[in-house]
């Protein structure tokens, strides 16, 4: 086996970076799964929004996330299909996916979204939390959008040209998402007594799910070290600054530093993900191997 099939070699003007293929794939899935799952959650509002104009805006945002997820899954599928057969078999444990591999089939974006089991999903816990009400939805989006903004900004400089291209395309959308959720943070935080209370509850509740985004797991560390991934330590500082500025302007209280939940990026999720997947994957699981 030559180096090329094991590692993706990325050239930059100065140097060559090495990242094991399986790590690059995991990193891609982390980003893709975040986009898919938050998009899915936001799409649950479609037809049920508090204001017709916001029903439309939320759906737009869901569509952006879904679009990002698709680009990333397409890239991930391409990487996966190029792996040596024995590596492929080790990657995901879903029997439906394994059957495809045994039949020597290539996989695509839909196989990744619809046929992986929960423990092979790498999204952060924050994005799978349920909508509850408009306040929880706005706060969840805001925490995530603020992260995503700095994350995609960093990815612009990725040594991986596909990531850089996806980041460039996504950054416009993400910038708008952050503006949208920041405005709602302020509007509702500084609206009525009731809206203020609901927002504070949501901020406090979701706070413990924010740390995971900017805490590097092994995948993040390798991706960063190889010049492909973002520097999460730097993003952590920028994220906190942005978040406290908006929370301040919303006349909400910034939560105290506390214990943070972790695990999503490594496949250990909250109870919510199982239900999301049961619903989302139903068709592909019930009627496998069909064109839709």
């Amino acid at each position: 086996m030559n180096q090329n099939s094991e590692n993706k070699i990325l050239s930059t003007p100065n140097s060559q970076f090495l990242i094991p293929n399986s790590i690059l794939l995991l990193y891609t899935l982390q980003i893709a799964d975040n986009a898919l799952i938050i998009g899915h959650r936001i799409s649950e509002w479609c037809g049920h929004g508090p204001i017709l104009e916001q029903d439309i805006a939320a759906t737009n945002i869901a569509l952006d996330h879904l679009g990002q997820a698709r680009s990333l899954y397409q890239y991930a599928a391409e990487q996966f299909n190029a792996l040596p057969a024995e590596d492929k078999m080790k990657m995901f444990s879903s029997t439906t996916l394994q059957a495809k591999l045994t039949a020597n089939e290539n996989i695509d974006e839909d196989d990744l979204a619809y046929l992986r089991d929960g423990w092979d999903f790498h999204n952060v816990l924050l994005v799978e939390q349920n909508n509850k009400d408009w306040a929880y939805t706005v706060v969840r989006s805001f925490f995530y959008d603020a992260f995503n903004f700095f994350f995609y900004s960093a990815l612009l400089n990725s040594a991986d040209t596909t990531f850089a291209a996806i980041a460039e395309k996504s950054l416009k959308e993400v910038t708008y998402h952050l503006r949208w959720s920041s405005e709602w943070m302020i509007r509702l935080g500084d609206g009525t007594e009731e809206s203020h209370q609901r927002m504070q509850d949501a901020v406090d509740y979701l706070w413990s799910y924010t740390g995971e985004m900017t805490t590097a797991n092994e995948t993040d560390k390798t991706a960063f070290a190889s010049g492909i991934g973002a520097d999460l330590a730097a993003i952590k500082t920028a994220w906190k600054e942005k978040v406290s500025a908006v929370i301040n302007e919303s006349s909400l209280a910034m939560p105290k530093d506390a214990w943070m939940q972790h695990g999503g990026k490594d496949g250990s999720h909250t109870e919510h993900l199982g239900y999301i997947l049961a619903e989302m994957q139903f068709m592909q699981r019930a009627y496998p191997n069909m064109e839709w």
Binding site: G47, E109, W292
Partner: peptide, 19 residues
């Protein structure tokens, strides 16, 4: 059916339609 659409393309098209 938005949350149960059978593939990502159909999901996007359906979302856009309902929108």
């Amino acid at each position: 059916w938005i949350t149960r659409a059978p593939n990502l393309r159909r999901k996007a098209v359906l979302l856009a339609k309902v929108q």
